[in-house]
Design a protein around this nucleic acid. Structure first.
Lengths: 221, 221
DNA sequence: CTATCATTCAAACTATCGATTGAATGATCT
DNA sequence: AGATCATTCAATCGATAGTTTGAATGATAG
């Protein structure tokens, strides 16, 4: 190659950033952060066609953010390592700190109300131990089944209104979802608070909880 | 807006990543990591035309990674905060861990020899205190003048061969440069080792050193 | 060894990005 | 107030990215 090594290096770094520069791929990474998945499952969850999904996944693989293995006739993708999750998190943090538009969208999700500070994962662990909190997993049932925080109830946003009466009104409710880019927990907290309940989000989702080395319960399949 | 808030959020995160997805902009960020700069200075350092440089800078500003202020008739850009530097670093780390191509380029810079592990900044500080190390700043003279680690000698790669005889042969030499994306230190260490000297890189460059809260010496202008 | 099926490739199209040129802006300085 | 000059805007071009469609691959299962 005739170009300078310096430029060649920058091209490589840019390749990683470019892999993160399309919403569709961020959506795929969000899914993969919860666990390894096949192409078809990912396409279904993200609403992409199979072929399109495959191409995005290959781009993610070329960037080194994800890797794949073969299982029978299926190809299973997964995040390469925890650094990928770190990168996703940092991207979100920078966007939330610096972009007014993000602030606006998140405020819209909360129905304009001020949401309380998220609960740290360490604090949640302590409060789960002494039972002073109701934990709510607001992801779809299949994702809950594939792994969730022990002690968490599962209810999608649609189901939330139905289970409202069953929630102890004096116990603080903590909601969590997929992690870096998921908005379910934001919306759930807004709904719960509109109904007068004391609710807040968990800081991070299941991927971060798992990355902390904390226990994850998998339903028997 | 009619699109879902979720997609809108992902678009914003992708905007930040897209800002990092062009080598020219990474190059600008590398310069800005060393300190705030005007458009013309940045264009000169990166080899971009003024207009092109201005457009890239605006894209960086839209992404929230950099901000600007006016000083007389000049517009001065700077990194928004330390998170930008973190993001640049993490991008490099992920690329170095996962991309074979990066490994190859860095090996080429070292002339194929195995380079020793970089020295940590904390260790450097200790060894500067007891004088057991020769510190070499291999950036251009103007960047050295704008701020450098106290006690560092300045020599560009071109000048390196000339000052070789003046270096104590028994003292370990530590080289540093701009930081995340700079290759000068790699090349300098390779040159020094080819001449039989005991040399290694500093982990990180001036921006990381400054971010640690360590002293930086600015030449009187 | 052949059929099957999940995945990948290839080609086409549209949209967007990056570089260049030359003109316009707009804050300063006299 | 007008001249100056750094910066930004606008228009253009070529190159690249994203989506869709349909065909090709290639590992498995019978």
């Amino acid at each position: 190659m005739s170009i300078s090594p310096k430029l060649a290096l920058l091209e490589e770094y840019a390749l990683v950033a470019r892999a993160l520069s399309a919403p569709a791929r961020l959506s795929l990474l969000e899914q993969l952060a919860q666990g390894e998945r096949g192409v078809e499952a990912l396409a279904g969850k993200t609403g992409l066609t199979i072929a399109n999904c495959s191409q995005h996944l290959q781009q993610l693989r070329r960037s080194g953010l994800v890797t794949s293995r073969r299982d029978g006739k299926a190809v299973i993708y997964r995040l390469t390592d925890a650094k990928t999750l770190e990168l996703m998190d940092l991207l979100r943090i920078v966007a939330e700190r610096n972009l007014a538009q993000v602030e606006r969208i998140l405020r819209g999700l909360s129905g304009g109300e001020d949401a309380p500070e998220p609960l740290s994962r360490a604090d949640l662990a302590a409060r789960l131990a002494d039972g002073s909190v109701t934990l709510l997993d607001v992801r779809p049932a299949d994702e809950y089944a594939a792994g969730h925080i022990p002690g968490a109830l599962n209810a999608t946003l649609a189901q939330l209104e139905q289970i409202l009466p069953t929630l102890a009104p004096d116990t603080e409710i903590v909601a969590y979802c997929r992690g870096p880019y998921c908005v379910y927990a934001h919306q759930a907290v807004a709904t719960l608070r509109r109904h007068g309940l004391n609710a807040r989000r968990l800081d991070g989702g299941l991927p971060e909880w798992r990355e902390d080395g904390r226990p994850v319960l998998i339903d028997a399949g």
